[in-house]
Write a protein that binds this DNA or RNA. Structure first.
Lengths: 146, 146
DNA sequence: GCTTGACCTCAACTATTGTTGAGGTTCTAT
DNA sequence: ATAGAACCTCAACAATAGTTGAGGTCAAGC
């Protein structure tokens, strides 16, 4: 073993991921490895940074596909550095903001509606799955369609 | 057709769900129907309220299973009324609050870290997937494990 | 040199939330 | 009475994010 190289088991221990997940991430193009003489995977230490980015992005709700695309779009498919990270996380943060926005709006409506019985009232924004909201052009929706 | 009864197509139109989704929801125990002479599904109008609740809960991130369980735990498996709704939505709101909390914390860290290059610094809370955070008892985590 | 743990591949399975299609039946309108 | 729309069931497929198991190889310590 050359110093600085990591085996799949070491990466698993240090990243907290299962070996099977590392195999999976490699199939999906999220991480890379080369092989030892005996056909075993070897990783550079940078794999841990990539995995860190993957985990953060996942927590933010970014699908693996999208993360892999972001990695692929880096010049020379290099390991992301601080600048790349800034660009990626900035894009993902916007997505995250939107999700938080949407959930907060939902929570507010939920709060308004709890105990008020409005689910039985036709004008409740959470109620009325009926024509009034289902039909196109029925005025502004208080909750996003999605 | 008895007045007030709805066919599956009508429910689909009025709820915005696909017929296949209604079949699926029925298999999952979220909605009920009886059959016409010709073995076609018939629904009471209350199915629309149930569907409304399902949709709201789903937006809040509640899995269908959990929604079905909440329905099943109602006395007599009756159609949820305003009081039932209040209890269910209150529980789900807590879950929703936690998710918003978690995402907001993540967003804040993302904001702190963008452009600061800290992903290359060992102390960054978003970085360091390494032993320091992966090991048990490594002090308070700034980001939740999940 | 042999056991044991770590590793390899590949296929199949998990869960969630549905959709699609094949093959057949019923309802409604003309 | 018949066309066409709407309905029926059941099986298979889709995407996402992996895990599990079978069957076999490699590496390290005693």
């Amino acid at each position: 073993m050359i110093a600085g190289e990591l085996t799949v088991g070491e990466v698993a221990r240090r990243s907290g991921l299962a070996v099977s997940a590392l195999h999976f991430y490699e199939r999906e193009g999220l991480i890379r490895s080369w092989r030892s003489d005996g056909n075993q995977r070897r990783y550079g230490r940078d794999v841990l940074r990539r995995i860190a980015i993957v985990k953060v992005a996942q927590k933010a709700g970014v699908p693996l596909r999208t993360i892999a695309e972001a990695f692929r779009s880096l010049p020379l498919e290099r390991t992301p550095d601080a600048g790349d990270w800034a660009r990626m996380s900035s894009a993902w943060k916007d997505e995250l903001e939107r999700r938080i926005e949407r959930l907060s709006r939902l929570r507010d409506h939920l709060t308004d509606c709890i105990g008020c019985g409005c689910l039985s009232i036709a004008s409740c924004p959470l109620h009325n799955p009926d024509d009034a909201l289902a039909a196109a052009g029925a005025g502004p929706r208080l909750l996003d369609p999605d």
